[in-house]
Nucleic acid binder design. Structure first.
Lengths: 210, 210
DNA sequence: CAAATAACATACAGTCTGCATGTAAATTGA
DNA sequence: TCAATTTACATGCAGACTGTATGTTATTTG
């Protein structure tokens, strides 16, 4: 007859505790903000003590980074699930855009990923996370469109970053109550504007600044 | 013969103290971050005590809001100075874009306005500030371009917000070491893509999602 | 010029973060 | 298999910070 609480390997214990902490932190970070959530509250929700937290994470910020990482992965997964990778390049971009905007409606997700994330971890760290998850499919879609000649050839990294920034702002605006249709319309117009068409058929000789 | 420190009216005292606090806070908030800057440090730099701070500002966040407000005004001013309001609509947009990117190179400004600002004050509050200052000229430029028929007619608020978001991300990327030319190229491509040209001269009957 | 008020300064309470130390459980290796 | 070591926590503490309450000085008001 073994003990009440079964004998667990250290690896299992660590994994379970880390998961509990991340889950509790995720819940609180999405309900409130990073700054408004204290570690005592997190560990209470996770059913451990602060000692466990600081054993598994170097500081509160590291726990936050783990939460952001996980949440970014979930968002990427939701997008991939909703948007089949085939189709024509432009259709894939549209499907991905809608899936992203839908995924970002999860409560607190915009604040976690778009406000607290960049402020707490810095833009560089967030870029790193985004590039490992969500942005990847966006960039691949853009590259595909360029190769298919349905999109102007432009610096890929910059284009990916700027379109992602527009999507992010759209998600924030929509959550704040703005018209989803308006923002969707503009996003599509921005993407369609990148078609390799005659640039701007207006008065020739427009002065170039700088 | 009057006293050593001249008799000052309350209005002057308040104005001077508030200005000192905002200046000291601005310096520290741009050198470090909002979270890393404590009120004791701020008041020491300003030459007052925390009592003065909490007399003039309801809390640390309110002081931060005042700093952001002022900095946003300075940025808007720098843009207006560098970009004459006349010219053709597109040229004005380009000049304004370059001026914005140049203005955002001031040390710590991107973190203050683009990272800490949204996280601490919220996107709604930042939108409010932006609309009172920087975004105004952008929106007016877009409206002018639309009226001049050199730009597709689109929801103005949404377009302004999304382009502003792209500019913001570009400023962050450039500060992080990315190629200014790359980002400038993409920004111009995004703007030029909004010309009222034949949208995308490709295979007809492309399926519309939703 | 006295009363009221504004502009501060000082002192205090509560909370939080990170670390140091202590303890129980698991792993190692002889 | 069992003692030594390491891991996974729990507990307690030190420093710092925020916001507030209270006291004091300068200004304004009637």
């Amino acid at each position: 007859m073994q003990q009440e609480s079964a004998r667990r390997s250290n690896r299992d214990r660590t994994e379970a505790t880390r998961a509990d902490l991340i889950a509790a932190a995720r819940k609180l970070f999405t309900e409130k903000s990073y700054a408004e959530t204290g570690t005592p509250e997190i560990v209470a929700a996770a059913g451990v003590t602060r000692g466990a937290l600081y054993h598994h994470f170097v500081d509160k910020q590291a726990l936050f980074a783990a939460v952001v990482e996980q949440e970014a992965a979930v968002v990427a997964e939701e997008i991939e699930r909703a948007s089949p990778p085939s189709l024509f390049a432009r259709d894939a971009l549209i499907a991905g855009s809608d899936a992203y905007l839908a995924a970002m409606r999860a409560p607190g997700r915009t604040r976690l990923l778009l406000l607290d994330g960049p402020a707490v971890l810095g833009r560089a760290a967030m870029d790193d996370i985004d590039n490992r998850h969500g942005n990847r499919s966006l960039r691949e879609g853009l590259v595909a469109a360029m190769r298919a000649q349905t999109m102007k050839k432009l610096p890929v990294e910059a284009l990916t970053a700027l379109l992602a920034a527009a999507f992010d702002r759209a998600a924030l605006a929509i959550e704040a109550g703005a018209s989803t249709e308006d923002y969707r319309t503009v996003l599509m117009a921005l993407i369609d504007g990148l078609s390799p068409a005659p640039a701007h058929p207006q008065a020739p000789g427009s002065a170039r600044t700088r």
